[in-house]
Amino acid sequence: MKNEASKRISVVNAILLTAVSLLSIAAIALPSAHAASPLLPADQCDAEAGSEHDLQRNMAFRPVATEDIRIGIALSACREAYNQGSGPRQTFELARVLHAAGQRGQAMAMLEKAVEGNHAVAMVNYAVMIGERGDHASEFALYQKAAATGNILAAYNLGVAYRDGVGTAANGKLAAQWFERASVARDNLGAFNLAVMLDEGTQIPEDDQRAARFYKLAADRGNVDAMVNLGLMLENGEGMVADAAAATEMFKKAAEKGDAFAQSKIAPPQIDTATTASIEPSEQANLVLPKAGRVK
Rank of each mutant, 00 (worst) to 15 (best):
N286T: 11
T149F: 04
L142W: 03
A255R: 00
G105S: 11
P63M: 05
A274N: 09
A109Y: 04
G165F: 06
A148G: 10
A211I: 05
D220Q: 06
V166E: 13
D164W: 09
L94G: 02
L234Q: 15
L111M: 11
K7H: 10
A95H: 03
A36I: 12
P63V: 05
P63A: 06
V115H: 04
A267Y: 00
K257A: 00
D272V: 01
L230P: 03
F251I: 03
V295E: 08
S138R: 15
A148Q: 15
Q106M: 13
V11D: 08
L174E: 15
K7P: 00
M1Y: 08
P281I: 12
G165T: 08
L217M: 12
F92K: 06
L75Y: 07
A5Q: 09
M59I: 13
M240R: 15
E238Q: 14
F140Q: 04
M240L: 15
R210E: 13
I25V: 14
I204G: 04
G231K: 08
L23A: 15
G72D: 15
K2I: 14
T18H: 02
F92V: 02
N193W: 09
L230A: 08
Q44F: 06
V12R: 03
G237C: 10
A127E: 02
L153R: 08
A36Y: 10
M250C: 08
T168R: 12
M123C: 02
V20I: 15
L40M: 09
L174F: 02
N125H: 03
N3K: 14
D199S: 13
L217D: 11
N58C: 09
D68W: 00
S21D: 01
N188L: 11
G87N: 15
A176G: 03
A292E: 14
M1K: 09
A120E: 09
V196K: 06
S138T: 15
M1E: 12
N188W: 01
V288K: 15
A35K: 13
V128F: 11
A5W: 05
P38M: 10
A26C: 07
D220L: 04
Q144K: 07
L30E: 13
G50T: 08
A247T: 08
G150D: 04
H99R: 13
N118E: 13
A49C: 07
A242V: 10
L142I: 02
Q106G: 14
Y162H: 12
A176E: 04
M197H: 07
Q56W: 05
L22I: 14
